[in-house]
């Protein structure tokens, strides 16, 4: 995973609350056995019309949303299934951060493992960002601060997750390094 210290991008705004993972990537695209190339299916049922053409009325299809790496969404983003295909689709499309007032637990956990920064901001900052699509925003992991043209907001980020993101550390390596403790636990529990 590429280390992330600061993200700078204009925002794409999706002003919809409770965006579930079935919207982020519908179940019919989950028959894949790899994690690559899912960006084309991101928000498939909102993004494309029945004829497969891009829908002009969908936020991400607006010209100013092109190339944005920061997605600002309504409250409670990523609820629903545990499919990691959701962050895979978002990152393959080009997003590096999702901003909301609440982000569902499993989606947040999956995002952190794929270099997609979950940014939870206060309602006032969130409202401002929703009302100003396309502004230039920076997300600084060192200080866990989101800066936008009218101000800034701190956001919570679990210290270990932050460390992993900033150093490109993969958790599996860390867990494998705990072998002695795992073996000791199995010894105590009688697991062979």
């Amino acid at each position: 995973m590429e280390p992330i210290r600061t993200l700078r991008s204009r925002t794409a705004v999706l002003p919809v609350s409770d965006v579930d993972t079935d919207q982020i990537i519908p179940a019919r695209f989950l028959t894949t056995t790899t994690r690559e190339g899912l960006g084309k299916h991101l928000f498939a049922d909102w993004r494309y019309g029945p004829d497969g053409a891009l829908r002009a009325d969908f936020a991400l299809n607006h010209p100013q949303a092109a190339g944005c790496a920061i997605l600002v969404a309504g409250n409670n983003f990523g609820c629903g299934s545990s499919r990691e295909h959701a962050p895979w689709a978002l990152t393959d499309y080009g997003f590096r951060a999702v901003v909301s007032t609440q982000i569902a637990d499993i989606f947040r956990s999956n995002s952190l493992k794929n270099g997609l920064v979950p940014v939870i901001v206060d309602p006032a900052t969130h409202r401002w960002l929703l009302e100003h699509p396309g502004v230039e925003v920076s997300i600084d992991l060192e200080t866990t601060t989101l800066r936008h043209p009218a101000g800034e907001a701190r956001f919570p980020l679990e210290p270990f997750a932050r460390y992993c993101l900033m150093n490109g550390v993969d958790e599996l390596g860390f867990l494998l390094g705990r072998e002695a403790e795992i073996a000791a636990y199995e010894g105590r529990a009688g697991i062979r």
Binding site: S82, R83, I106, S109, N110, K113, E158, F160, L175, I182
Partner: peptide, 21 residues
């Protein structure tokens, strides 16, 4: 429920890294 990366963690180590809910 866990994601696929974590499925790999459990397969390889029988463990997960978790903050206490």
């Amino acid at each position: 429920g866990i994601g696929t990366t974590e499925v790999g963690h459990v397969l390889a180590t029988q463990c997960l890294l978790q903050r206490k809910p």
